[in-house]
Amino acid sequence: MRKLLVSPAPHIYSAENTRRIMMDVLIALAPSLLVSIYFFGFSAIQLVVVGALTCVGVEYVIQKYLLKTEVTISDLSAAVTGVLLALNLPPNSPWWLMLIGSIVAIGVAKMTFGGLGQNIFNPALVGRVFLLISFPVLMTDWTIPESWFRAGVDATTGATPLALVKEGLAQGLSVEEILANSLDLSYFQMLFVKTGGSVGEVSAFALLLGFAYLLFRRVIRPHIPVTIFLTIALFSGIFWLIDPNQYMDPLFNILTGGVLIGSIFMATDYVTSPMTARGMVIYGVGIGVITMLIRMFGSYPEGISFAILIMNSVVPLINKYIKPARFAKEVKNG
């Protein structure tokens, strides 16, 4: 008689797996990646390749030789970290900056906690913030490298829109004057080709395309990005209504300073974000508020990286106390 397999129900499983999910994140990043290669050329390719290879390499070496555990690089999570970090650096960053960032991201932020699923802080963000603190000049050098797209044109500096505004305001200019002085700040520019900013931020449209893909594939739920957007809109909207000459409008605040890439790709990192829908909303509101506080009162013009990292540290607490909506509304006694 044939031996039959016997195991408890359920007997079928969905096709989801970790690798497929990470692959989807990479696919969702592809539009932004292509746009940045178009604008920044070799420099963007170099950053992404160095990032992905270093992250995967570091994870491999640590798992194989240091921890002597199963090597799990094929789940692609390290590759995602590498690509994300690359997309978060200024386009003109040297390759060795990327290398250092990747080593910190995987070696320190991920593997010391026990690898995928164990870390508290988003590895790519830890890498980015580490670089920002250690190499402040390089990390805010927004020189646009030469590419096929702008071949022959002199390298230009494209200060980030937020920095432009912050600087302008500090010089006593009004928002209207700042906008009049800069060609790069129209909404059309910001939606499609905003060259001031990190590698992955060129086109808001490309990032939103990735967002739509992630939602369509049900890789992420909309809760976190949407609450961040709404919180930033509300927060900045209040100030903007009070004095539109001192504060930028809500849409500007959402389209600039890494809010899109941060909300869509960093804040939604499974490992470092809450498990329940309610928790996600609290987390999103927290990120939005902290981002705006940093922008208005802090010394960094951007702020979302720090906001996400700060909220990362609250996630274990959120998971402990914020329970999902239970099915049963009451408990029967006796």
């Binding site: 989801e16 799990t72 690898g115 499974y270 329940t276 999902p324 239970r326 099915f327 049963a328």
Partner: peptide, 15 residues
């Protein structure tokens, strides 16, 4: 390893 995706929480009909 558990990747803490929260999908199990999302699909649980009992919350």
């Amino acid at each position: 390893q558990c990747i803490r995706c929260g999908k199990c929480v999302q699909v649980c009909p009992m919350g």
